[in-house]
Amino acid sequence: MCVCPGMIIALIASAYDLIYWYLRPFIKWFLRKTTKLCELQRICYGDPHGALRTSNVGRLTVVNPRDLQTSLSPARQNELKTVLGNLGVLADSGRFTEDYAARPLAFSIKRILEVKQINPDIHREFVPSINTCLLQIYGYKQLVYSVEQLRKTAYSAANMAHEKKLMELWDCLMPLTPLESRISKNWTEIGFQGDDPQTDFRGMGCLGLDNLLYFASQHTQAAQHVLSHSRHPKYGYSFAIVGINLTSMAYHFLVQGKLKFHLYNFVNGCPTVDDFHHIYCYFFFEFDKFWLSEKPQDIMEFSRIRAKFEERMSSLLSRTGAVLNFNMAIETL
C-alpha cells in the first residue's frame, strides 16, 4: 500500500497539535512561575502594540458563546469568560460605544486583574495596554454592527435625509454643472446606470451612498481626479457603480475579519464608521490606478480585474504590519 507524503506530514502535524494541546498548560505554568507574568501580560509587554499584540490578546479573550457553556476550565477562568463574553454581547447588539462601554470595560479589566492576580500599581503598563486591546477587539465587532445597519437601510427617495446626501454627492463631484432635475440622464455622468440612482444602491443600501459621499466630500480633489479617469473614452468605467461594487468588497472584508490588522495598527481604540470610509477611499483610489495599469479592452473586463484587485488587497491586509494609508496615497496626486 502506498502512503503519500502529504498524509505523513498531516499525521505528524496532528500529533504535534495533540502533544501541544496537552503540554500547553505545563508550558504556561512553567512560564508563569519563571517570569511571574501571566500570558496576557507576556503578550502586552512582549508584542509590539498594534495588530500583533491585539490579535494575540484577542485569541485569549474572545470567547465563543458556545464555549461558555462547555468550557472545562476552572471556575475563576470561567468567570473571566463570562465577563468578556458580556463585552461581546454589547458589541454584537451595537452598544459597545466609547461612552457606553467605559464602565463594563473597566469592570472587565478589574476582574482580569483580580483573577490573574496582577497588581496594577506594580504593572502600570498593563492596564492601558489591555484597555486599548479590548477597545480595538470589541470596537471591531461594534463596527461590523454599525456598518451592517447602514447596509441594511435601503435607499429611499421618500427619505429626505437620503435625498439630501444624494444631492450633496452630485454637488461635490460636479460643482460646475447643476443637476437638471431629480430624475435626469445627468446621473449617468457620475456613473449611475440610469436616470434615477435609487435603484443602483441595491444590496449595499445607504452604505454605498455614505461611502461615495465620504470620498467625494472629504477627499474632493482625489474623488474628482478618479471621476475624470472614469470618463476616459477608452479606459472609462461607471464611477458610481464601480464605487458600489467596491463598497461590497470593503464590506465583505470587514465581515470576514480581514480589516482587523489594518484597524488594530491604525486606530488606537474603538474604530468608527469613518475609519471604514477611510479604507473605502483607499480602495477606490487604488482600484482606479490598478484599472488603468491593466489597460482593459473594455468595461466587460471588470469582473476579472476586480477579482485580481481583491486578491491584491486581501494579501496586503493579511500582513500583521498592514496599514492602508490613504493620505499617503493621494500625496502622489
Binding site: Q193, D200, R202, G203, M204, G208, Y237, N245, S248
Partner: peptide, 25 residues
C-alpha cells in the same frame, strides 16, 4: 438594468441574494 438578472443568476446557483450590486460587465 434593475430587472433582476443577477438575483436570478444567484438564486439559480442557490447563493445569497442579499448583497447584490449593479453588474459592471
Amino acid at each position: 438594468d434593475n430587472a433582476g438578472k443577477t438575483t436570478i443568476l444567484r438564486k439559480l446557483a442557490a447563493e445569497d441574494i442579499n448583497h447584490i450590486t449593479p453588474t459592471q460587465g
